[in-house]
Design a protein around this nucleic acid. Sequence first.
DNA 1: CAAATAGTGTCTTTGAGACAGTATTGA
DNA 2: TCAATACTGTCTCAAAGACACTATTTG
Lengths: 258, 258
Amino acid sequence: MTNKKALEQYDVKKYRTPDGYTSDICVFTIIPEKMEAYKPPVMDLKIMLIQRAALDSEGNVNIEANKWAIPGGFVQDDETAFEAAKRELEEETNISGIHIKQYGVYDKPGRDPRGWIISNAHYAIVPDTYLAKRKAQDDAAEVALFSINEVLQLDLAFDHKDIISDAINVISTDLLQTTAAKNFLPKHFTYSELQAVLKTVTDDPAILSDQSFSRKIKSLPFIKEVPGKTTTRTSKRATKLYTFIDMDVIKPIYTARY
Amino acid sequence: MTNKKALEQYDVKKYRTPDGYTSDICVFTIIPEKMEAYKPPVMDLKIMLIQRAALDSEGNVNIEANKWAIPGGFVQDDETAFEAAKRELEEETNISGIHIKQYGVYDKPGRDPRGWIISNAHYAIVPDTYLAKRKAQDDAAEVALFSINEVLQLDLAFDHKDIISDAINVISTDLLQTTAAKNFLPKHFTYSELQAVLKTVTDDPAILSDQSFSRKIKSLPFIKEVPGKTTTRTSKRATKLYTFIDMDVIKPIYTARY
DNA sequence: CAAATAGTGTCTTTGAGACAGTATTGA
DNA sequence: TCAATACTGTCTCAAAGACACTATTTG
C-alpha cells in the first residue's frame, strides 16, 4: 500500500495545530409551569447551565470564573465529540438513550483566551424528571435552569451567548419540522401534551387552537392513535393517547398550504 | 480582571491536542442535461471532486494518492473554517457571494492516517458556468463533476464517502424546506427552471406536474412575480419570470396537508 | 399548421377554520 | 350541578388535483 510510504514522509507539525477540541452541550428540558391534576400542561422550554467555579480542580483561579456556561469538556483522542457529549451527559444524568444532535462549530480566533480551541456544539433533550433530581443532589448554586427568554440576558462565559442563541433557533426549527418533539414526551401522549410542547416555540394559530389541533393530529401520517388506551392525567374525562411512528418527514415548502 | 491571573496559570498542554483542523467543501452545481433552445431545462445535480496527486508539493508520496476527494485544506489559526472554505472557493472560482453552509464535523479517531485531524464540512452551491470554466483551465483529469447517483460508487479518499453522503442528504432537505434553490437559479427565473432544480431531489407529484406547479408558484409567500418581464429561453411563448423574496420560511409538519 | 411550452377554466373533492354543541367526570 | 377538558357536527370557504381547453411562437 502506497499510504505507508506517504505516512513515513508526512510531518504532522507542518501546520500550527489547535490547542484543544471541546464538546459542549446545550441541555434542554421542558418543565410543566403549573402541574395540577386533571389540567393540560403549560410548558416552558428551559436550558440547563452550570456556573463556573472560582477555582479549578488544581486550586488555580479558573478561567471565566463565576460566569454561567454550557456544560462540556475536552474531547479525548479516542472518541468523537458526539461520543464525548453522550458520555458526559449519561454520566451526569444516569440515563441512556438521550436525544443528542450536533448543530454547530465555534472556532472564531480568540473565542477562548486560553488558545485556539474549537468547540463542537450539541443540543440534548432530557426529560425534566432527571434534571430535577440532579438539581436536588448538587449544590443548587452550581446548576440552574433558565427559560429561553431570559438566558441571553445572563453574563455568559466565552462565546456561549452565540452558541446558546443558535441552539434555540435550531431546536425551535427541529421541533416544528421534524418529530423531535417526541423526545420531550412520554411514549404515549395526549394531543394537549404535544400541543404544549409545540406552543413553547410557535404562535401558529393552527397549533394554538384546541379543536383544530385535536382534529389534525388524527390525520398526521407520523402519529397514530394507541387503540383502547386512555389517560386522565390532563382531564377528568378519559383522553385518547397517541404515539409517534418512526419515519422521516420532509414536507416541501413548495407544496404546503399558506 | 480575574481572567488574567487564570491565564498565567493555565497549561495549554494539559490535554492531547488535535494534529490538524481542516475545512472541506462539497461543491454542488446543477448543470443542464440537455440545453436546447426554447426547451425547459432538464437538470442534474453534480458534485465537484478533485483527484489527489501522486506526489505532494514537496515531491513526497502523497497520502491517499490518486483517489477522488472533496476539495479542502488546513484551517489557519487566524480564520474560521467557514472563512477558510469561503477563501478557498473564491480563489478557485473567482466569484464572490457563493452560498456556503456548514453542515457537519468529522472527527472519528483514525479517519485520517496522518493523525488526529478534525474535518469541518461545508457544502457550497456554485453556478455551473464557473465550474465549466475551471474545468477547461485545469488538467481535465484532476477535476471532475459526478452525479450524486454515481459519486458514492467511486474510490474516495479518507471518510469522504460519509461526508459526501451527508452533504447530499442535507442539500436535498434544504432545497425542499428552505429557499436554498435560489442559489442554483438566476435572479429572475421561470417556473420550469425552479421546477427543474427541485426535480433533482424529489419525486413529489405536486412538484412534478407542470400545471400544478405553475399554479402553485403564484401563491407562495416567498416568491413573487416580476411584473412585465418575460423570457423566451425555455419556450417559444414568452414566459413569466419570478424572484425570491428574502424571508425565513418555516412550515411546521403539524400544519401542512398530507 | 404542427409541435412544443405555458398557461387558464372549471369541476370535484378534500381539508382548514370557525362556531356550536355534546360527552365525561371530579369537586 | 358546575366547571373544565375533550372532543364531534356541520357549515363555509379555499385550495388541491384532474381534465380539458386556450395562447403563443418558431420551424
